[in-house]
Design a protein around this nucleic acid. Structure first.
Lengths: 327, 327
DNA sequence: CCCACACATGGAAGCGCTTCCACCGCAATA
DNA sequence: TATTGCGGTGGAAGCGCTTCCATGTGTGGG
């Protein structure tokens, strides 16, 4: 075995007895080529074990082959959220299928989104921004327009893909009401995340319709905050008989906080979450929640940017109630 | 605003009144440069908002700027493991710090590892293989040697970084023994994963020393398998008084399976896991486990490949017992 | 006062690929 | 037979960058 240097397109062209231009056309499948040329090049590719160099390709075609995922949040810890993990692995599947790479980035909240700085934007095939704020989206560089999608809330220029928080929330809260709960508290998402607003509105509407009062405490999608919120809620409103958290992670934290307080679930207080993460069914009591079709959302978003499909401004995916033990 | 085309090194050089070569030296920090040139170039970079093109850089320097993470497993579902998620986010941090991208790949088990095919290996700055088999590692192309590290078991040529399964397992099993358990069953990892062998040996040794018998059932690091394993164990050995799973996910599944069987934990059977994932403290009862310093492991591995530090053949990171309610 | 020897610098040659463009031959059209 | 048109092709020009090399500059020792 002597082939230290891996084969280049020139090697392939030479072996196939065609020009590099022709070889390129065959390999990329772009442009005309006689079946004879096609066969010879294909054979040479196999024989030499040729693998196109992604960097050279990106450079020459000025169109990147990498799908970047930027997660916005206060700290880099947002990268550890199971929700982000699911977005990422889903995107990785799509990317693998298109033979492009994936890169993961954290963008600090409130800083102008220097998306251009994402490891050399020229090599970018597409960009998925997770949980963006509208101001952040305004800073997306012009030359990236049409190759960006938001997972969460979008803007006129940036299409968005998100779960239907509104009907999802309605489903959960109505279920809580149907089991006789009236004094239902809600733990929201981070205040800077606009997608939570619709959920809060839906909660308020259902509560109004059923004659209950609203009790809202801010959350941040973490379990730690859920435990703290549970204590806060039971202190401010001791007669609370249900807690709905806009995140399973937070709901799990609520379960933990309630347990520490000696409150029984669902006996004294029912608890429901949102997202239906893998652990929701493993908790004791198993968590009642509403699905968050992250795989579908991320798939749609990834395909949209990779296909340069800048059509639909906002797509919402339905969420369905999953009743388990906690409510 | 007219700057459609983003700034190139040529623009910077022109603005700074130096040659492109000098500008390159300043930007990369390689090679000599007068402080005057340094200042002028730095100013131009700021003013023009210059961002180096990763693709061009990789092409010209023939040294990639991407950290690839390849996870080996039967199905692409391995990408969803929380362990892989932690490796990934940790690597993303290191990568961000070095200004390189990260890409995620799934490599089918038992297929020759065509690592060369990972989206154009020439652009690869480093490769982290998660849970490799030794045969897989043998297929790593020559030109990648020195830029590859294994997270799990390695080979002579590929350095490895892993948790110290042996002492970690000893700690957990000894703890079980110290609380009076003697009929302890163990749920292992996938049989093709060699790193689990040392754990099994450690378990067997402790059991032998304490006069207990060994009861081993195969696992695969999933929660579903844990539930099934629980049923299997209680059927084959109804007098089992403790279960140790080599993965928290599996242990959580065991908890679930035991609950379905009406077995109380830790009353009838104690349960312990391994990894100390975030949800271990949230389960009811909270899971007793042993830490898996994934962040440290992934950090060390990422730095090793990025720094071309092909020194230590195998590094093991200590695991410490975390006692909670389940055991 | 001259030679050596650093250091600093610009010119130029690529890295491996895509793509524009001119060109050739051949069938279909006039 | 003289035109058009077009699928197929190779030459060549880059994409933005790093890096080798030859060429100036300034310092010190002889």
């Amino acid at each position: 075995m002597k082939g230290q240097r891996s084969a280049t397109l020139d090697d392939v062209a030479r072996a196939a007895g065609v020009s590099r231009a022709t070889a390129s056309r065959v390999v990329t499948g772009q442009g005309p080529a006689s079946s004879r040329a096609r066969d010879r090049v294909a054979a040479a590719v196999i024989e030499l074990g040729y693998v196109p160099d992604a960097a050279a390709r990106a450079l020459a075609s000025r169109s990147g082959t990498r799908l970047a995922i930027a997660v916005i949040g206060h700290t880099a810890a947002v990268l550890d959220d199971p929700y982000v993990g699911r977005v990422l692995t889903t995107a990785a599947h799509i990317a693998a299928e298109r033979e492009v790479g994936v890169s993961l980035h954290w963008l600090p909240l409130n800083e102008p989104v220097t998306l251009a700085g994402l490891a050399g934007s020229r090599g970018l095939g597409g960009l998925l921004v997770v949980n963006p704020t509208r101001p952040a989206l305004e800073t997306v560089p012009r030359d990236l327009r049409g190759r960006v999608a938001a997972i969460g809330v979008g803007t006129r220029d940036v299409p968005s893909f998100d779960v239907d928080n509104r009907t999802g929330t309605e489903g959960v809260v109505r279920h809580l009401v149907s089991t006789g709960r009236r004094r239902i508290a809600m733990v929201t998402g981070p205040s800077w995340l606009p997608c939570g607003d619709r959920a809060v509105e839906a909660y308020q509407r259902v509560m109004r319709d059923s004659g209950g009062e609203t009790r809202v405490v801010p959350g941040d999608f973490t379990a730690a905050r859920g435990a703290a919120a549970a204590a806060e809620i039971m202190t401010r409103w001791p007669d609370t008989d249900a807690v709905f958290a806009l995140s399973d992670l937070t709901a799990l934290g609520v379960l933990d906080g309630l347990h520490a307080l000696g409150v029984s679930v669902p006996g004294d207080v029912a608890v429901a979450g949102f997202d239906d993460i893998a652990f929701a069914s493993l908790s004791r009591p198993a968590l009642t929640t509403s699905t968050h079709p992250v795989e579908e959302i991320a798939t749609a978003a990834a395909r949209a940017v990779l296909d340069r499909d800048g059509s639909a401004p906002a797509t919402f995916f339905p969420s369905t109630l999953v009743v388990r033990e906690s409510a």
